[in-house]
Design a protein around this nucleic acid. Structure first.
Lengths: 194, 194
DNA sequence: TAGAATTATTGATCTATATCAAGCCATTTT
DNA sequence: AAAATGGCTTGATATAGATCAATAATTCTA
């Protein structure tokens, strides 16, 4: 289980973490198992964790006044999932996080993360690269949502995250793209024809 | 000029940078002046700088096939402006960055930033907090663009960045929100009536 | 300060996408 | 195996917002 996180740290930082340093990482995390449809975070509560997905699939979403779900992010193997806003500012979250498949996670808290960052330079480096990449990806997603048509949005998703397209049901992909399931269905149909 | 950056570092990190440490910061930056409509970055070139706005106003935008501009970000006093994707991955930028008003900047390069981060712990901390905040803000903007109506988007902008609304022409605000100037004009009219 | 350029408003259409509704699969549950 | 549930498709219709066009207001600039 933990070797998945170890691989990830090595891959992201282009380094090799030592056994000694990795012991600190090990100590900071706890295993957690979620069955399909189980919640990790409910709207209104403060997100006190960061978690790393070992296997399975999750989503982070908001439910609006009309009861519509808007998916903010997906996570699968070797992705982090958390509400970063709530986590860093200790404000109540506007989001739910739940499992789309049975999922195994490594979970840690703010305090653990903070002391881990002091003890493991490589973990710290990983955290920064993660933030940097997250921002770059998010900014591209903003561009896609403000400039693209429904069809272009879906094509962009297939190009940037083909795994999501295979892994998540179409209605959730639609929600992630900010279009309706019906529109996505029609977009796919017309793309197949080409 | 430099004291603006100094204030910023202190404010963001909730600390006070020492004279000695700040000397490294000073050494890493160069002043640059742009007249209204002058470019700092052209699409196609690699963004080799990060810059900090002392005063003035700037924008980062993409021009699509049809010639439509899509504004990715705005910057005014005490904001950073750069194409982070191009900057970190050394890939050609898809964006233009230009001045909306006469602007004074502090500019630095990748190499300078990297060695500065090694020499100044507080600058390093600032950089990380900046990334973290940028990601959180960008993720919220994603949510707004996928879930909100034109009116809600504008209200959200007024709430989160009222300065932008005062500072940038309406057609640019519309572009930033992913709606047309005509729609924004009508939205504003109907909001005034309320 | 006049003329040019840019930006904002308003009205008349048009269109991409949403909404509503029904039926069909494919899984899961009993 | 029947029933229930969740997801996907397809068709008919509605609508938010885009587009087109013209005018008005504002701000450059010579």
């Amino acid at each position: 289980m933990l070797h998945s996180l170890r691989n990830y740290i090595n891959r992201i930082t282009s380094s090799t973490i030592s056994d000694e340093e990795f012991k600190y990482v090990e100590a900071a995390f706890k295993m957690k198992t979620l069955k399909k449809r189980q919640f990790l975070l409910h709207e209104g509560s403060v997100c006190k964790f960061m978690s790393f997905i070992i296997n399975g699939a999750m989503r982070q979403y908001h439910i609006d006044d009309k009861g519509n779900e808007h998916i903010i992010s997906f996570g699968i193997e070797e992705w982090w999932i958390s509400d970063r806003g709530s986590f860093t500012n200790l404000t109540p979250s506007r989001y739910n996080i739940d499992a789309i498949e049975d999922t195994n996670l490594l979970v840690t808290t703010r305090d653990e993360i903070n002391s881990l960052k002091e003890r493991s330079p490589l973990f710290l480096k990983m955290a920064h690269i993660l933030d940097e990449n997250s921002f770059i990806a998010s900014q591209k997603r903003v561009e896609a949502t403000i400039s693209y048509t429904a069809e272009e949005k879906f094509i962009y998703l297939m190009e940037t995250n083909p795994v999501f397209v295979k892994r998540f049901p179409q209605n959730m992909l639609a929600s992630y793209l900010g279009i309706t399931p019906e529109t996505l269905s029609r977009v796919r149909k017309s793309l197949l024809g080409k």
